[in-house]
Design a protein around this nucleic acid. Sequence first.
DNA 1: CATATCTTTCAGAAAAAAATGAAATTAAGC
DNA 2: GCTTAATTTCATTTTTTTCTGAAAGATATG
Lengths: 142, 142
Amino acid sequence: MNIMGMPRSVGEIYGLLYFSEKPLPMDAVATRLGISIGSASQGLKNLRALKAVQSTYVAGDRRDHYIAESEFRRLFSNFIKDEIMPHLESAKERILRMEKLIDSSDFEVENAEFYQIRIDKLKRLTKASSRLLPAMTGLLKL
Amino acid sequence: MNIMGMPRSVGEIYGLLYFSEKPLPMDAVATRLGISIGSASQGLKNLRALKAVQSTYVAGDRRDHYIAESEFRRLFSNFIKDEIMPHLESAKERILRMEKLIDSSDFEVENAEFYQIRIDKLKRLTKASSRLLPAMTGLLKL
DNA sequence: CATATCTTTCAGAAAAAAATGAAATTAAGC
DNA sequence: GCTTAATTTCATTTTTTTCTGAAAGATATG
């Protein structure tokens, strides 16, 4: 969760649900972890957005009950698709803009060759990452 | 840098050095980025610890001059070795402690089978990660 | 060895992130 | 349709992180 940029409390919620055999309602999460229901609501919202948690229906109870996604492979593949890949795509655009800028004759760029070498490295990095990251989850046979 | 848990200013320092043809002394970094020399010192210290930056000798100048490690592959492999693997190892220990705890007859653990299943998943995850992560940098042909 | 320059450290200030709690919103059950 | 429980939202407070600036600590040079 740390690597995914989530605060400690979100990790704790996930941990609690991961080790809970039955689905837990929000207030149980808040009570058990000693956090406010506002926090629990926010945290669960984040976890839902990552698809790290899912709400289920429990007969005879109005409250939403949550269970953790326990397949780590699915967690990672969602995270890579939703959080990493968009960053990579926007990085690619920014790199192209840099390249255009040093090529343009609007300014006389001093060390154009040096910058081009560095930009090329960045391009190779983003390219390799776009290939490798989605493939990674396939390798993760647990 | 974000993924590596570094503050924005550290990313900026790295970025500045990455795109600098000649090595820069600390005060140039601070001036150029508009940060205090205290910040620059701290940031460079962090970057040195990650081996993302290296100080070089420049003739006729007392000051340390810094250059960025521009081989991303090396950056990642250092990061995985120094920052990720130790976490993984300590995670393994904690998981083993959990397992001992539910096995021990000191307490009667209610859902021992369920916990064991979850623990096994964690064990497989840490195992696969220890194999995969160091291998990853090998795949990263840039 | 003394001085001047450069660097680190660290207490306090500033900024950023997270948590709270209460009001607003939603929706279920009668 | 009304009531009430559950949930979300959001302004405020609290906590954590980062930055600053000055003092202490190095280190090169004459």
